[in-house]
Design a protein around this nucleic acid. Structure first.
Ligand SMILES: [Mn+2]
Ligand SMILES: [Mn+2]
Ligand SMILES: [Zn+2]
Ligand SMILES: [Zn+2]
Lengths: 146, 146
DNA sequence: AATCTAAATGAGACTTATTTGCACTTGTGT
DNA sequence: ACACAAGTGCAAATAAGTCTCATTTAGATT
């Protein structure tokens, strides 16, 4: 099944005019397999751990290409490094609650909020491309441990 | 009137347990006088232009202290540097539309959106402290010039 | 299957925003 | 005016991310 997963990922890359290199396949497979929000360094270390040969430069360059093709989404939690997650379909768009105590990330989707975003853009004759809706605070678990 | 403005700012700083140094007064006065979203380097250069003697290190350290005291708000538009604006009262909270073409920033406030944020937090038993709602896209002007 | 070539990679130098160590200065309480 | 902790300036140090260039490789072509 890993064999056919690789084939699928190769296909995906080619459909987006990207050469299906081992590095890109491994990176995409890594992001496919997790709900974490990794930064570039974490991705690099994970790939090394999995015996994939890859360099930091390639991680950065691949992420750039994958984000460009909207196969990967870049997230900015405001702590000085970019994070990445596998793009889900439009139907799976979500925003984030980020716990300032433990770093946990909770994903949510609120249709009304999205509607208000569009309404606001229209009011200002502004054409949106992407948005960032990050709510920082304290998660349920961290409140208990106080 | 600039004299009394200085006195007011000194007072504000002291109320927040910060020594009222010339550098901090000048920085706060600069942010008070604009609706721009400056980054640290821009602030540094503006202060130099105004003949204020100040170093980059002090700009960074002052901003940190002022943000800590919630006198200044730190904004991250995802372009690799932090931006800052004078904190407004809760009543003047706003979010941002950011034009990817020309960099223009449009401020907006949407009560329903804020309400949905609180609702979402409650659903997840999450206590919010701050949020970022940034919508990137193309502004009205930039659409015309196409 | 061998050959070709543009695109991709690896290693490390480089850039840029921000932080830090340390000697010196200044705001503020007495 | 004095004392001293807090703040500052300068330069060196970090750290995320980018770039250069020699080498490799995916995928198209014989
Ligand atoms: Mn997510
Ligand atoms: Mn603003
Ligand atoms: Zn938590
Ligand atoms: Zn614009």
């Amino acid at each position: 099944m890993s064999v056919s997963e690789n084939q699928e990922l190769k296909q995906v890359l080619r459909e987006h005019e990207l050469k299906a290199t081992n590095q890109r396949i491994a990176l995409l497979k890594l992001l496919d397999a997790t709900r974490e929000h990794f930064d570039a360094e974490e991705i690099y270390l994970e790939l090394l751990k999995k015996q994939k040969n890859v360099s930091r430069a390639t991680v950065y360059r691949s992420l750039e290409a994958l984000v460009e093709q909207d196969l990967v989404t870049r997230l900015d939690f405001g702590d000085g490094r970019m994070r990445f997650e596998r793009s889900k379909g439009d139907d799976e768009h979500h925003d984030h609650l980020i716990c300032e105590e433990c770093g946990k990330v909770i994903e949510f989707f609120n249709l009304e909020m999205e509607a208000q975003q569009l309404a606001t853009c229209e009011e200002h004759d502004f054409t949106p491309s992407v948005h960032t809706m990050h709510i920082f605070g304290t998660c349920s678990d961290c409140k208990k441990n106080k």
